[in-house]
Design a protein around this nucleic acid. Structure first.
Length: 549
DNA sequence: GTTAGGG
DNA sequence: CCCTAAC
């Protein structure tokens, strides 16, 4: 899965998080272990529109029930052939079959997904339903064709290395010029905005649903319409202010470069084993997305595909400021190394994301680079984690992905959003030293506070007892390998505070009380390993002396 | 990339 | 938690 973002705006910057769905071709499997459920899941998570998952997914006119979302991912192998609908039946597909399939969590085969992508790419957005339904030579008579038939699904430009199938949504920009004037029709909005509720579906002009009786009342349908020309590119820029139509828009008199970011892509790749549960996938996705939205973003500047690492170069020096280099300029958003927590926000109700919103989903944060947070009560909480292999290993995934900060409990869990607003970043900022913290303005948002739970403390203590206080990396690997948001530095810091906590009186302690037994162990371990460390040092000293003698 | 400490 | 010197 990939998250693409789009930024647009004039004086203020609007940052819309878009997404791209990627189905990863498992190396070994014949079947792509993505089910409709997972797709829905990905969509759900990626769009932050619906948490938990929608009860059904309206997919190219077919309604998929998603009740079995908690099922374990199917394994490759028992890959029943997909149904048998012939051409003529397309208009009257058997949704019940699909649903049955869904219930079994039957995955799509690679071929099917490929076909989907190809078919979509082939037909594109403008094609009519009939055209779209035309069987692709390679597809064969499978129900999948129906899925391919979506008028709106738009495939990614290419299959990278043949490894990915992408069905992505993109803003409907055809080119820099048009995008301004062109009146955006509904389908020009990214999928995120097209998620419909109450059965208001755009995609099914062919009325696939109603004929099925599956859900004559298409409640909570998920209309997945990917649209747009797919012309969104990294670093498609336009100008701010009114010089859009000029040919030398990027250089104004004052030699400031004015840029308007049209879109960003944020690659988020997730890979989990087939045996993973949907819950764990959800957590993984959530984590990755959290990391991105939580401030774990890094901006890269590219010139003709080449990354410019030297932040101190001026635009002039890099050549970016030259008018003829517009197309060569690229920006990228990349996740930073360490994971980050999920931001929280709750201004927008999911319903507001309905497709008809004429305005991009944006926020104008009072403070620069405010990342809105996402409160999410993920259904993943309820899902069990895969069994932990190592005994000493501390599985903390539950807390990882769906942290619900106690302090934020007043917020409605239903509220969620994935909008990152970037405040004004005018030419000045760019012109000089781009991306340089000029008063902690943008970019690096402080990670959300995630107090250690008692169980975490227990795990930490246990690991330190075993490994000592100087091998935090090992501690991390041993006890917090699954807790992506806990870095070894975090663990080291926590130990520091634990030692401190253990030394102060219980009255002075704050937060969730740590059992005294644990604190005692902390002190014991601390004393023990301090002593060990001292011994080591003495030994080293003597060794050194011996060497000198 | 890790450690170790101060902030 | 952040920041960073030091390794």
């Amino acid at each position: 899965m990939q998250i693409a973002t789009e930024v647009e705006g004039s004086s203020n910057w609007r940052f819309r998080v878009d997404f791209e769905l990627r189905l990863y071709k498992w190396p070994m499997a014949r079947a792509v272990p993505f089910t409709m459920n997972m797709i829905a899941l990905a969509i759900s998570v990626a769009t932050f529109v619906e948490n938990p998952l929608p009860s059904s997914l309206l997919f190219s006119g077919e309604l998929f029930n998603l009740d079995n979302i908690e099922n374990q991912l199917l394994l490759a192998g028992d890959m029943p052939t997909l149904d048998t609908h012939q051409e003529g039946q397309n208009s009257n597909p058997s949704s019940s079959e699909n649903e049955a399939r869904l219930r079994k969590n039957i995955p799509f085969t690679i071929e099917e997904v490929e076909a989907l992508v190809r078919g979509v790419r082939k037909h594109g957005r403008g094609s009519t339903t009939k055209t779209a339904f035309r069987p692709s030579p390679r597809i064969g008579d499978r129900r999948i064709r129906k899925i391919l038939a979506s008028k709106f699904w738009k495939a990614a430009p290419k299959l990278k290395d043949g490894e990915y199938f992408t069905a992505e949504t993109k803003p409907g920009y055809h080119n820099r010029k048009n995008c301004y004037k062109r009146k955006r029709s509904l389908r020009d909005y990214p999928l995120k905005k097209r998620i419909l509720y109450d059965g208001r579906s755009l995609s099914n002009s062919d009325g696939g649903i109603t004929s099925e009786g599956i859900s004559s009342s298409p409640r909570k349908g998920f209309s997945c319409d990917a649209s747009g020309s797919g012309a969104t590119l990294h670093g498609a820029f336009g100008t701010t202010s009114g010089v859009a139509s000029r040919h030398t828009p990027f250089q104004s008199r004052d030699s400031h470069v004015k840029l308007r970011i049209r879109s960003f892509k944020v690659p988020v790749f997730i890979e989990i084993p087939e045996t993973a549960t949907v819950g764990s996938l959800k957590r993984s996705v959530m984590e990755a997305v959290d990391a991105i939205l939580g401030g774990g973003l890094r901006v890269g500047v590219l010139l003709q595909g080449k990354k410019i690492r030297d932040d101190n170069k001026t635009l002039l020096q890099t050549g970016l400021a030259h008018n003829n280099k517009l197309d060569a300029l690229g920006l990228s958003l990349e996740p930073t190394v360490s994971q980050s927590p999920p931001p929280l926000c709750n201004e927008d109700h999911p319903l507001l994301l309905s497709c008809n919103a004429p305005q991009p989903l944006t926020r104008y944060p009072p403070v620069p680079s405010v990342v809105h947070n996402i409160v999410e009560q993920s259904a993943a909480d309820a899902l069990p984690d895969p069994p932990s292999t190592s005994v000493g290993s501390f599985v903390e995934s539950d807390h990882d992905s769906a942290p619900s900060p106690p302090d934020m409990s007043d917020k409605s869990p239903m509220d969620s959003r994935a909008l990152v607003a970037i405040p004004e970043m005018d030419a000045e900022a760019l012109a000089v030293v781009p991306m340089r913290k000029s008063k902690r303005s943008e970019a690096v948002q402080r990670r959300i506070r995630r107090p250690f739970s008692v169980s975490e403390v227990e795990a930490l203590v246990h690991a330190v007892e075993k490994l000592g206080t100087g091998r935090w990396r090992d501690v991390k690997l041993r006890a917090f390998d699954n807790a992506k948001h806990r870095t070894y530095v975090d663990l080291k810091d926590k130990w520091k505070t634990l030692v401190h906590t253990a030394r102060i009186s219980p009255q002075q302690r704050r937060g969730e009380p740590v059992p005294q037994v644990l604190l005692d162990r902390v002190l014991d371990a601390h004393a023990y390993w301090s002593q060990q460390q001292a011994k080591q040092q003495l030994k080293q000293q003597s060794d050194t002396c011996r060497l000198l003698l």
